[in-house]
Amino acid sequence: MDPREFHNALRIMWNLDRHELVEAGVIDADQEGHWLAFRDHPHATAVRMNDKRFDRLCKLVESRQPKRSAA
């Protein structure tokens, strides 16, 4: 990941909606506190996630990254 991709990943995290996180299995639909924590502090919340949820979040963020062009 280059600096531009990393910066974009941080932006992507800030723009994820609750339903997207639930559908990806990053947070549970019935856990309002998890959503509020992620909404208010997505990066800090991500650092505190267990490995399984963090892996799901990474896949979700990666799916939003622009495709790399072949050099």
Rank of each mutant, 00 (worst) to 15 (best):
M1C: 01
M1R: 04
M1S: 04
M1E: 03
D2L: 10
D2V: 08
D2H: 07
R4H: 08
R4V: 12
R4M: 10
R4T: 10
E5G: 07
E5D: 13
E5S: 14
E5H: 12
E5A: 15
F6M: 15
H7V: 10
N8L: 14
A9S: 15
A9P: 05
A9Y: 11
R11H: 08
R11A: 03
R11L: 10
I12V: 11
I12F: 05
I12E: 00
M13D: 07
M13V: 11
M13K: 12
M13W: 11
W14Q: 14
L16W: 09
L16H: 05
D17C: 05
D17I: 09
D17T: 11
R18E: 02
H19I: 06
L21E: 07
L21R: 11
V22F: 02
V22H: 01
E23G: 08
E23C: 09
A24V: 02
A24L: 02
G25M: 10
G25K: 12
V26L: 02
V26S: 02
I27W: 12
A29W: 11
A29I: 15
D30P: 11
D30N: 15
Q31P: 00
Q31A: 07
E32T: 09
E32W: 13
E32S: 07
E32G: 05
E32L: 13
E32N: 08
G33S: 10
G33L: 13
G33K: 09
G33I: 10
H34L: 15
W35T: 07
L36S: 02
L36Y: 04
A37Y: 04
A37F: 02
A37D: 06
F38N: 00
F38P: 00
F38T: 00
R39V: 00
D40Y: 06
H41L: 05
H41G: 00
P42W: 04
H43V: 12
H43N: 01
H43W: 13
A44L: 15
T45N: 00
T45K: 03
T45L: 00
T45E: 00
A46G: 03
A46Y: 08
A46T: 12
A46W: 10
V47E: 03
V47F: 04
R48E: 07
R48N: 06
M49T: 03
M49F: 14
N50H: 11
N50P: 03
N50D: 12
N50W: 07
N50M: 05
D51P: 02
D51T: 11
K52Y: 08
K52C: 02
K52M: 04
R53H: 09
F54W: 14
F54I: 04
F54K: 14
F54S: 04
D55M: 12
D55F: 07
R56M: 07
R56I: 06
R56S: 04
L57S: 02
L57Q: 04
L57W: 09
C58V: 14
C58T: 09
C58K: 14
K59S: 09
K59V: 11
L60H: 08
L60N: 05
L60T: 06
V61T: 00
V61M: 02
E62C: 08
E62H: 12
E62F: 13
S63H: 09
S63R: 13
S63F: 11
R64M: 11
R64L: 06
R64E: 06
Q65P: 00
Q65W: 03
P66N: 07
P66V: 11
K67A: 14
R68G: 11
S69T: 06
S69E: 10
S69R: 11
A70P: 03
A71I: 13
